[in-house]
Nucleic acid binder design. Structure first.
Length: 415
DNA sequence: GGTCGTATCT
DNA sequence: AAGATACGAC
């Protein structure tokens, strides 16, 4: 690789989709020369605006100028640095709170956290989602250890060997997950999919397929919903509920027997909320480099429309997407375990070629032999005998982390 | 040892 | 009061 910027572009996985195979091949060559994978198509100001608004890092007019390609990484890196700084600030704030609480009790744990922070600051190798996930994992792990430790100490206390276990009683609360209407809608839809009697937190987490969202968080939310003690932020804003008569009192809960896998009984506004899950649609050809969405924004799936022959291009990025499997010409069916992105895409974009990326922890989404656990799936579902005008999008995909779902890529429709 | 539902905490 | 955590049960 002759480029001096190769060191900077090497870690950036960019995906190119173009209807013009020949042109795409050239672009691939050029971008690969600089360590990317890429594309381009018609330039459109409105589309550019929307793409940028939707989180694209850069909207590039075709043909790609070599200088732009050469320095493409700077746009991505700038965004990443900005996001990293914001994240670091919030983490510092969080760390201050933790220090206030823990001071002397959890020196070891704080050191552990500091280690995490060092990793977090490494923007070349890490991304937001994986950080959230890791933080959760660490947090949960610590929680479990604390719990076991407390149980053990409790046991010891009962046996008269230890007298003071309060040192382990310090609780470090992690940052709260904001259950937005959108996230809740996803949650509710997963409940619908799983069905009455099968609504278990673990399954819900898997179906929701939201990176960083933990089973415990879902369980907590499920508890709130089952007792009808959760309202969307909008509802909270406009009508404050008088002290609850609707939810079960503690004594009532104690007296009732455990019901496993039950679905929350309240279903209001589900359809309305579901509408928030529809994805932005563009009706022009496009070329853009995708960015990442913030954690609080709706999780739009990466979607793209390609011609079947783009799979040839796909082969060109096979090498760099070794963990990605392709499912060509398949029909997306509603089935347990399939993420909503796929379901919604199939429902909304019938007859279209749909590509979506999904990060799943342990569920198999397609029949691809190359699918392995903890991999990304890239499904290109292409109706047979259909041709489409071209479209080009650039995805910034970090294979080493769970960034895929955070990519907010505006899909485009071609008629 | 993992997950569940419920109780309790912040 | 939302969301995290603790905890006993399975």
């Amino acid at each position: 690789m002759a480029s001096t910027c190769y060191a900077m572009t090497e870690g950036l996985h960019v995906m190119l989709v173009d209807h013009d195979e020949e042109n795409a091949a050239e672009m691939v060559d050029l971008l690969e020369f600089y360590g990317y994978k890429v594309v381009s198509d018609e330039y459109n100001d409105l589309l550019a605006k929307k793409a940028l608004k939707e989180g694209a890092y850069l909207f590039v007019k075709r043909p790609l100028n070599e200088e732009i390609v050469k320095h493409l990484w700077q746009f991505i890196l700038t965004k990443r640095i900005q996001k990293d700084e914001v994240r670091k600030e919030s983490e510092d704030e969080y760390q201050m709170n933790v220090d206030d609480i823990d001071k002397d009790n959890f020196v070891g744990d704080n050191e552990k956290l500091s280690g995490e922070k060092n990793n977090v600051s490494d923007i070349e190798e890490q991304s937001d989602n994986i950080h959230e996930a890791e933080n959760n994992i660490v947090s949960n792990g610590e929680c479990k250890l604390r719990r076991k430790s407390r149980r053990k100490n409790s046991k010891e206390t009962n046996e008269g060997e230890s007298q003071n276990t309060t040192i382990n009683k310090v609780v470090r609360r992690k940052n709260c997950t904001k259950w937005t209407a959108n996230l809740h809608a996803k949650f509710m839809k997963s409940l619908e999919l799983l069905g009455e009697g099968s609504c278990y937190p673990k399954q819900i987490v898997e179906v929701m397929n939201v990176p960083g969202l933990t089973r415990m968080q879902v369980a907590s939310h499920l508890q709130k919903c089952r007792s009808d003690n959760w309202r969307s932020p909008e509802e909270r804003k406009y009508n404050r509920r008088p002290s609850s008569n609707t939810s079960l009192s503690d004594s009532q809960q104690k007296n009732s027997f455990r019901k496993f896998g039950t679905m929350p009984h309240f279903q209001k506004n589900i359809s309305q909320r579901n509408s928030e899950l529809t994805f932005p649609t563009l009706h022009t050809n496009s070329t853009f480099v995708s960015g990442e969405s913030s954690t609080q924004e709706p999780l739009y799936p990466p979607q793209f429309h390609v011609q079947p022959h783009h799979l040839n291009i796909g082969n060109s990025f096979n090498n760099s997407f070794s963990s990605i499997s392709y499912n060509v010409g398949g029909v997306i069916q509603q089935q347990r375990g399939v993420s909503f992105e796929t379901l919604d895409s199939s429902q909304q974009l019938q007859g279209s070629i749909i590509g979506s990326t999904n990060y799943r922890s342990d569920l198999t989404l397609n029949n691809g032999d190359r699918h392995t656990q903890n991999d990304y799936n890239l499904n290109l579902n292409v109706p047979h005998g259909t041709t489409y005008p071209g479209n080009i999008m650039l995805f910034d995909i970090d294979i080493e982390s769970a960034t895929c779902n955070k990519l907010k890529v505006t899909n485009a429709n071609f008629q």
